[in-house]
């Protein structure tokens, strides 16, 4: 019984420690979970499932929490990226409910400030030189590859993950990364035909849409 009491005291203290950490980082956690919720909705949409109810529920729950003044500029930009992707999907849906939700998402993006707004309405006036954009692309790919290598044991699994991302994203960087990985695997003697076919199919579908 003494053991049980000791264990229960420890349980109470650890629970309190975790709860206090969650409370202290509430804004940051709400932000991350909000992004994660949008991401889940995008994945659901990519699988052909309806997301109207999910988006409505997300907006009701997270819009009041994720206010511009509680976020850094980088956080606003990233949220703007996610919301822009969501907006694109809602526009593609072509129904009344989606149109209303799209209006609300557009307002939210506008309220995030110039960074988020620019993402969907206009391209930069003077794009950076091509070489700089390519370097930025490679830097981004390096970061993505580091994150993928942390969760997958083999490059083929990383490639599969990247191709899945390329399937649901308009951003051509995922296709570039996939092509680079396929070429490398081919140089190393791997059979890459199935992956190459997948990439070509994704490329064709993206161009068609």
């Amino acid at each position: 019984m003494t053991d049980l009491k000791t264990i229960e005291r420890l349980e109470t203290r650890l629970t309190h420690l975790i709860e206090s950490q969650l409370t202290r980082k509430k804004d940051q956690i709400d932000y991350l979970l909000g992004l994660n919720r949008i991401d889940d909705l995008l994945v659901e949409h990519g699988r052909g499932h309806g997301v109207t109810e999910g988006v409505a529920s997300f907006l009701a729950e997270y819009r009041p929490r994720l206010q511009s003044e509680t976020m850094t500029a980088a956080q606003r930009r990233r949220l703007g990226d996610f919301l822009s992707e969501l907006l694109q999907r809602l526009r593609d849906s072509n129904d009344g409910d989606s149109a209303k939700l799209a209006d609300e998402v557009r307002e939210w993006i506008s309220s995030l400030g110039e960074g988020g707004f620019r993402l969907i309405l206009k391209k930069p006036q003077e794009p950076a030189p091509l070489a700089e954009r390519f370097q930025a692309c490679l830097r981004w790919e390096m970061e993505e590859m580091t994150a993928l290598a942390a969760v997958h044991d083999h490059l083929l699994s990383c490639l599969d993950d990247v191709l899945k991302s390329a399937e649901v994203k308009v951003d051509p960087t995922y296709r570039h990364l996939a092509a680079s990985m396929i070429y490398f695997l081919q140089m190393e003697g791997y059979k890459v035909d199935p992956y190459l076919k997948r990439l070509r199919r994704i490329q064709t579908e993206t161009e068609a849409s």
Partner: peptide
């Protein structure tokens, strides 16, 4: 398939579970 890298996604799932 996802806009969030795998480790960050796992972190989010961990926070939700917490």
């Amino acid at each position: 398939m996802t806009m969030i890298p795998g480790p960050e996604k796992a972190y989010c799932r961990g926070l939700t579970a917490l």
